[in-house]
Design a protein around this nucleic acid. Structure first.
Length: 328
DNA sequence: TGGCAGGGGCCTG
DNA sequence: CAGGCCCCTGCC
């Protein structure tokens, strides 16, 4: 049995906020550790030399990505990662710590007051570098589903088809006594599911998409390793050849699974913003010449091409701002 | 209470 | 393009 040593890595991070990341709609296995269990997490933090005593803004989350597990806490700019020593580089990369998000926020067009507000409001968001396979399945599930429903379905898949993983006892500030979790199923594991089983999980019409994608990945028809080498336009086009993956899902997979942060998924929220806040900035005569179906693409190109190479970061600021700041 | 609209869409005809 | 699709939740 491999007994991995748990380390507590203390970092001072700017443009980093666990709650904003967890709620930004890009990851569905990052969950807040309940208030009742937070004292235990705090106790763990206090054992850590150099860590600040948690303030009133104390946050504690657990994250599962692929087969890995992390407990992470934050107070102010102090962030502590609890994980196996050898896994720390994975999580540093996962949270995209080497990237300076301050320069993204500062680059927002000073004349775009709306985007200024959105970026300021969500400035702690990171574009996570998540597992490609997990993102493909997760965003196929996401279509026509609410975030709580997506979380529930992902958990159901992990419980039924993923490996049960043990956690070292000391590891678990805030975890319940049964120290285990379920990894996201590998393509081989998930391909054991029959179409009927997937339908029983209430995946609805998505069941047949997942069933087919499992087969495509296992046969090598959908080559994940090759996909990782593609540039954004190539990856975007490649993904859409597969059953159940359209524009929106392909863009989400590019943004969250391939870290092609130029990808700009247009969902109903972004669609609403483009129509209500950006379309009105165009001359009527300009809009008249644009086919209805391409209007969104046109607006994205017109107003976000200035953020070449990282427009997806702006997309996340807008999504988060619309969901959590704009009163509805 | 029940009916309807909509959810980070996509496929088929 | 328009419709259908699975199923749930929120709303009136």
């Amino acid at each position: 049995m491999v007994e991995s040593r748990v380390s507590a890595a203390v970092k001072e991070l700017r443009q980093f906020n666990l709650r904003q990341i967890a709620q930004s709609g890009q990851c569905f296995r990052m969950t807040e550790i309940p208030m009742t269990e937070i004292p235990r997490a705090e106790a763990a933090v206090k054992r850590v030399p150099a860590a600040e005593v948690p303030g009133s803004d104390f946050m504690a989350y657990r994250v599962i990505s692929g087969f890995r597990f992390l407990t992470v806490v934050q107070s102010g700019e102090t962030v502590i990662f609890f994980c196996g020593e050898e896994e720390l580089p994975y999580w540093e990369n996962y949270f995209d710590l080497q990237t300076d998000y301050g320069k993204f926020v500062e680059s927002v067009d000073k004349k775009d007051v709306y985007l200024q507000k959105a970026a300021a409001f969500g400035s702690g968001i990171r574009i996570l570098r998540q597992d490609l396979w997990e993102m493909i399945i997760t965003f196929i599930i996401s279509q026509q589903k609410t975030i709580p429903a997506i979380r529930a379905l992902v958990e159901a898949l992990c419980l039924k088809y993923g490996s049960r993983m043990e956690l070292p006892a000391e590891f678990v500030p805030g975890e319940r006594d049964g120290a285990f979790y379920y990894a996201f199923p590998t393509p081989e594991q998930l391909s054991c599911a029959t179409l009927e089983e997937l339908q029983w999980l209430k995946l609805g019409y998505r069941a047949k998409y997942i069933y087919q994608i499992c087969r495509d990945v296992c046969s090598g028809e959908l080559d994940l390793e090759k996909l990782k080498t593609y540039d954004y336009p190539t990856a975007f086009a490649y993904l859409q050849r597969f059953y159940g993956i359209g524009e929106k899902v392909a863009n989400c997979v590019c943004l969250f699974g391939l870290h092609q942060i130029d990808a700009f998924p247009v969902d109903t929220w972004i669609h609403k913003v483009l129509m209500e806040r950006y379309a009105c900035r165009c001359r009527r005569s300009t809009l008249a010449g644009v086919p209805q179906a391409r209007l969104c693409d046109f607006l994205v190109k017109k107003y976000f091409s200035g953020y070449k190479g990282y427009a997806g970061v702006m997309q996340q600021y807008i999504f988060y701002y619309e969901r959590y700041a704009v009163p509805r």
